[in-house]
Simulated scan of single mutants.
Amino acid sequence: MSTSQQPVTPVVGVPAAAPEPRSAPEADGVATAAVEPRPAAEPTSLSPSRASDFMQCPLLYRFRVIDRLPEKPSEAATRGTLVHAVLERLFDDPAIRRTAPRAKAMIPGQWTRLLETRPELGELFAEDVGGERLARWLGEAEQLVERWFSLEDPTRLEPAEREMFVETELESGLRLRGVIDRVDIAPTGEVRIVDYKTGKAPRPEYSEGALFQMKFYALVIWRLKNVLPRRLQLVYLGSGDVLTYDPVMDDLARMERKLLALWDAIRQATRSGDWRPRPTKLCGWCDHQAFCPEFGGTPPVYPLSVSPGASVEDGQGRMGPV
């Protein structure tokens, strides 16, 4: 693992295939849209975001995947969505036009486009009559975009993929899926996976958790292309840091074992209906406190059938009988 604030060595890309539609928000800072309730079904796939939800709090996973409770958009998450859109579309321009002023000038138009596709985001600034808060928010997005130019030089990059939807199925039947912000391919064929983060880089003791998503993507790429990515790169626009990690095959093997164990725990919880909350400091940001027993709430009626005799976690991460 290394941390740097120096420009990253450029990698030349290859022509990209037409991107598949993004079926669910996966990238950091991407807001979650409110959805209409629909009949519940057992989960059949796992993404980095939902895997992280279950590891953080099984009940949060249930609220998002089983109950599909709506969540209010936040300024921070929506700003991340906006910044990601600008950094993706900047590469539509020829290299000579990929400048900081050009990128910042794209922000108002991308915000308008985002509102057209997600009109509920307008609620964020519904009471901002004078527009001061919106102007400040857009200015913060400009600062994040401008900082990116001190970390990477887009005039020397030709991404092979942007907002790349990936999906693969393991021998166990578990489907892994997600959306990768950017994939670079060097002239020698080496692959670099890049993810933009609009927050600050974590402290070193939390770096392994930050790399979970990237190793997940590395496993999927290896399964799909039989190629071990040469580098995993996290670009933190909030603090101006670049974290890199060069994976080895043992990393992918450990990741696959971890995901299979995680998926087994998710299936057990799905069949038993036992989704225990795991209180942490992150609970303060949760939209679902009204339904959480830790805050005196009651979860919605469980919409799936419960299998008699199913196993559940005993609160220590072990499995035991109901």
Rank of each mutant, 00 (worst) to 15 (best):
L260K: 11
K258Y: 00
L282C: 02
V235R: 08
G309T: 08
D246H: 10
A253V: 15
R276S: 12
P308V: 00
A261Y: 04
L304N: 00
C283W: 01
G240S: 11
C283K: 01
G309F: 05
G240C: 09
A265K: 13
D274S: 14
E313L: 14
A253I: 15
W263A: 11
K281C: 01
V301S: 13
G297Y: 12
R267N: 10
S305Y: 07
K281S: 14
R257H: 11
L259K: 03
T298I: 10
E313N: 14
A261L: 15
D241F: 13
L259T: 05
L260F: 01
R278H: 15
A290C: 07
A265V: 02
E256Y: 06
T244C: 12
H288M: 02
L259Y: 06
G284S: 06
V235C: 09
C286F: 03
P279D: 10
G309P: 02
H288E: 04
L237R: 08
P247N: 09
P247K: 05
L237D: 10
F291P: 02
T244Y: 00
F295D: 07
R267V: 09
L260M: 14
S307Q: 15
D246F: 01
R257F: 03
L252I: 08
S272Q: 03
P303F: 03
D287C: 02
L237I: 12
L259N: 03
Y236P: 06
T280W: 04
G240P: 12
C292L: 07
L262N: 08
G297S: 07
E294Y: 03
Y236E: 09
T298G: 00
V306M: 05
W275M: 13
G238H: 11
P308K: 00
E256C: 05
Y302S: 08
Y302K: 10
L262P: 00
W263M: 12
L252K: 01
D314V: 02
L282E: 14
L252P: 02
V306N: 07
T280N: 06
P303C: 10
H288K: 03
D287F: 04
Q268P: 00
A261S: 15
A269V: 05
V235E: 09
Y302F: 14
A253F: 12
L282S: 15
D241A: 12
P277I: 01
P293R: 04
A253E: 15
G273C: 06
M249P: 00
D251A: 10
G240F: 07
S239P: 08
K281D: 13
E256A: 13
G297M: 09
G240W: 09
C292W: 09
A310Q: 08
W275G: 09
G284V: 04
L243V: 09
Q289E: 10
H288W: 12
A290I: 06
P293N: 07
M249N: 04
D250T: 14
S272A: 14
S307F: 08
R257M: 06
R254Y: 05
V312W: 00
I266M: 12
